[in-house]
Amino acid sequence: MIIEHAVQIFAFVILTLMTLGGGLAVVTSRNLFHAALFLILSLAGAMGYYVLLDAGFLAVVQLLIYIGAISILILFSIMLTRGLMMPGQVQRNEQWWIAALVVFLTFVVLVVTMWQTVWPIADTEALRAPNIAIAQLGAALVGPYAIPFEVISALLLVALVGAIVLAREEGNQPARADAETGE
């Protein structure tokens, strides 16, 4: 039990370094491409969190959609608009220090609240065995959550159609345009 706890804490520390370190690099890196790669690192850290929190399926979804689709889309867009990444380009606006101040205050308020609150934590028996099978999640998605499930399919259709309309390159290369927005 003790060893298990130690392993968990060790993993937590490593993952926190990945997530927060990656996150800091995302917002400070001068090179946008590097920032996007650090985003992948940070997302991978969050994926590890989900594993630690016994949400294995969510971790796979994070890898599949966030890292596999969204990050690639972002990397691709950065490459398509790469004209902007001339070396020496300032990536920070002039109000960055105001932003830093505001953000720091937000963070302090949030952390104080988080530690002051007495959370309605479930009893220990329930905490021990969350073990939710994927089949249960799937049944929930087409059961109680069927309505939002259908709505999000409509949303994805809208995003897809709209993205193709907006980003499609005119001319005689329809195939390439499809691929760009084919996410």
Binding site: V26, L32, I74, A99
Partner: peptide, 25 residues
């Protein structure tokens, strides 16, 4: 902390894609 970092990214980046990275965080 991650939320704060992302918010900082949103507020301080000039590039729209950079802002999007912050939003993802």
């Amino acid at each position: 902390a991650l939320f704060a970092i992302g918010l900082y990214g949103v507020l301080s980046r000039r590039n729209a894609i950079g802002v999007l990275l912050g939003i993802e965080l």
